[in-house]
Design a protein around this nucleic acid. Structure first.
Lengths: 156, 156
DNA sequence: CTTAGTGCAAAGCTTTTGCACTGCA
DNA sequence: TGCAGTGCAAAAGCTTTGCACTAAG
């Protein structure tokens, strides 16, 4: 992967966003966003992102990856996912992809694969919570653990 | 708090459970479960549990707290909660308390308080997922972030 | 030029592990 | 008495930070 190979439009938007926020456009920042952009739906750890970027830009440092991840997260360009396995994972943000605005995770306990799915069901729930408890929901994180189709079939 | 002050019945059940599993009954294990039992709905870190137990049993070691937490979790007596603040938290398990079998968390972004609520809504969702995706849900974790009643009122 | 951003290495943090000792059964 | 359980300290492993250097604007 080389900068500019894919999503040039998205990339320009990113550069503008950086400039708008008084931040500098660096190849490290672009490369990291690019790596994540080219892998929608994948959930990468900092180390994995580091390795992927390093393949193209061997000079990058792990600390920069961590700092950039933080930055991208603050800019709402990427989403965090914690699977309680000791790593924090990141994926390119929902808001940049057409399909989904409500997006949850199905985690297979056998193969470890992660599936995404959309659902509006929680909107009812959030309204109900507002009425019952006076709690105003702003964001949510839903993780469903179980057994995926493939693993179920394999056992049969 | 002293061993035996509260929930003696629950405590006997715990001792039996340990024996049944070929595990030894130690004052450390009882004290840790006791601390959590006396604080239903609170979400304590290992360090917090350590400090609470230490008040009564100054000899206890932090490593024992970690090992016992693991044990209690394996025995399904306590539930894990990760708020992504660098600590893993624990609370006395749902299965030991009458009220709830479906139990989610409302986390206030302003005061940090955590509220629990029950809901069966997800059962529909799980059925739908099974039908649509063939994914069999076994467990779920739902965290809703927002603003609690108190914090909303305070601003008014 | 100016200073935000970077790379490197060291430090920080929670959590885990090794090992000798203790105490439950 | 025998071995699971414990306490202590050290190790582990992810993430953050300090600092001198680099490069964006």
């Amino acid at each position: 992967m080389k900068i500019g190979d894919k999503m040039p439009n998205n990339q320009e938007q990113f550069k503008d966003l950086l400039r708008t926020n008084g931040l500098k456009v660096t190849y490290q920042r672009i490369a990291i966003l690019e790596v994540l952009s080219n892998r929608p739906g994948e959930h990468l750890t900092a180390e994995e992102i580091y390795d992927l970027v390093k393949a193209e830009y061997p000079d990058i440092g792990l600390a920069t990856v961590y700092r950039t991840i933080q930055l991208l997260s603050d800019l709402n360009l990427i989403d965090k996912l914690n699977l309680d396995d000791g790593y924090v994972r990141y994926e390119i943000g929902r808001k940049n992809r057409e399909e989904c605005h409500h997006h949850h995770h199905l985690i297979c306990l056998e193969c470890g694969n992660i599936y995404a799915f959309q659902d509006d069901l929680l909107e009812n729930l959030e309204e109900r919570i507002k009425e019952t408890l006076g709690f105003e929901v702003e964001d949510h994180e839903v993780k469903l653990y179980g057994h995926c189709k493939e693993c179920i079939n394999e056992k049969a």
